[in-house]
C-alpha cells in the first residue's frame, strides 16, 4: 500500500480506534521497537537477551494491529513474511551451530572473546541473541494474526 493510502486510512475515523489512541500509538510503536532492539543487542552485558527482546518486538506489532486496523498492520508485515522470518531465524541459529563442527563440537564458540564490557565481545553470543530475537518476535506476531483473523473465517463460511 502506498503512503498516501495509509495516511488516508489513519485519519479515517470509522476504522481502528479513536484519534487520541492512534496518535499516541504512532509515537509509542517507534519507542517500543527501539527498546526491543536495545534489549536484544546488549543481551550479553545487561539483563535481557534474545527471548525478552523478541517478545517486546512482537508486542510492538501487536499494538499496531490493535490501534490501527488489520489492513495497516498486514501491509507493514503480512502473514507470509512473519512466518518466513520465523523460519529464517531458526535456520540461521542451526547453521551457526554447524559451523562449529569444523573443530568437532556442535555450537562451539568460534569467534574471539574480545575485550570485556564492549559490544563486540563474547564470541557469537550477540549473533545468537539477534537470531533468537527475530525468531521469537516473528512467531509470536504470527500466532496473534492467526488467533485474531484466521480463527473466525470458518464460522462465517458455514453460515
Amino acid at each position: 500500500m502506498k503512503k498516501a493510502e495509509i495516511e488516508k486510512l489513519v485519519h479515517d475515523e470509522s476504522i481502528g480506534m479513536t484519534l487520541i489512541v492512534k496518535t499516541v500509538a504512532r509515537i509509542m510503536i517507534a519507542m517500543i521497537l527501539l527498546y526491543g532492539f536495545y534489549i536484544v543487542l546488549y543481551g550479553h552485558l545487561t539483563p535481557g537477551g534474545g527471548f525478552a527482546g523478541g517478545v517486546i518486538l512482537a508486542i510492538a506489532y501487536t499494538l499496531m494491529m490493535l490501534a490501527f486496523s488489520r489492513h495497516i498492520a498486514l501491509a507493514k508485515l503480512n502473514d507470509f513474511w512473519a512466518s518466513m522470518f520465523d523460519n529464517l531465524g531458526m535456520l540461521a541459529f542451526v547453521i551457526l551451530g554447524y559451523i562449529g563442527l569444523n573443530v568437532g563440537i556442535f555450537l562451539y564458540n568460534f569467534l574471539g572473546k574480545g575485550t570485556p564490557f564492549s559490544i563486540v565481545s563474547a564470541g557469537f553470543i550477540p549473533l545468537a541473541n539477534i537470531f533468537i530475537g527475530v525468531k521469537v518476535g516473528a512467531c509470536l506476531y504470527a500466532v496473534f494474526i492467526g488467533l485474531s483473523i484466521y480463527g473466525r473465517l470458518v464460522l462465517r463460511e458455514e453460515e
Binding site: L140, V143, G146, L147, G151, V154, L155
Partner: peptide, 12 residues
C-alpha cells in the same frame, strides 16, 4: 497460544 487455539475452535 496452543490451548487458546483449541478453545476457539471448540467454541465455534
Amino acid at each position: 497460544a496452543l490451548m487458546s487455539a483449541y478453545t476457539i475452535k471448540l467454541y465455534e
